[in-house]
Design a protein around this nucleic acid. Sequence first.
DNA 1: TCCTTTCATAGACAGAGATCGATACAGTAT
DNA 2: ATACTGTATCGATCTCTGTCTATGAAAGGA
Lengths: 105, 105
Amino acid sequence: MKTLPVICCGPATEALDPDARETLAARFRALSDPTRVAIVNRLASTDECCVCDLNAAFDLSQPTISHHLKVLRDSGLVESSRRGTWAYYRLVPDAVRDLRHTLGG
Amino acid sequence: MKTLPVICCGPATEALDPDARETLAARFRALSDPTRVAIVNRLASTDECCVCDLNAAFDLSQPTISHHLKVLRDSGLVESSRRGTWAYYRLVPDAVRDLRHTLGG
DNA sequence: TCCTTTCATAGACAGAGATCGATACAGTAT
DNA sequence: ATACTGTATCGATCTCTGTCTATGAAAGGA
């Protein structure tokens, strides 16, 4: 999990090269959907969560939830592990912190 | 400019109602494009910026830059004022701070 | 007045993304 | 082995978004 050393939008701001723009935009894009915001929000309060619970919590099909989880996984904001039949998802605190720092925190 | 009292993704997290999900996703979506990240980044370092400078800084057509500025304006992240022929854009620090708080800051 | 400059808007188009049903795959139980 | 359950992936469809050209509106200068 690589960090984002660059600051985007805070008071002590340096110019961004094209790669940094892409990387930052990609991470914000991961949070640009209401369902994904809700998933991340839920993960932030429960520390670990089974996919079956997420499927039950949202009025969306199972493949759709799986798609959103893949987007979040690819962005590095969440990670998953399989234990037996079930898959469990967790937030990656460092990734969230990086995004916060990007906004000047 | 209304604030976002709710916290999404930090350690002290409460569940989000559908409206809050939409609002948060909309603000993150404003930063989900590399060009808009770069515009916000530039505004964060120059305090105020003429549209003509932005047009010159990016290899995109003038209407495209204008479109991105409208997206940022609608999201509340930037504001503009017209002085004579020129339009000037500024960051809205409170909006950026709200977004940062949303991530647990 | 007429022309030029600066910015915003409208309309069109291509590409990306959200959603679903169908299907594949991996564990578990019978 | 067979059947069942929980997830992931595939393929299709529909909507949204980024980009462009063309045009409009407002201000200033000849």
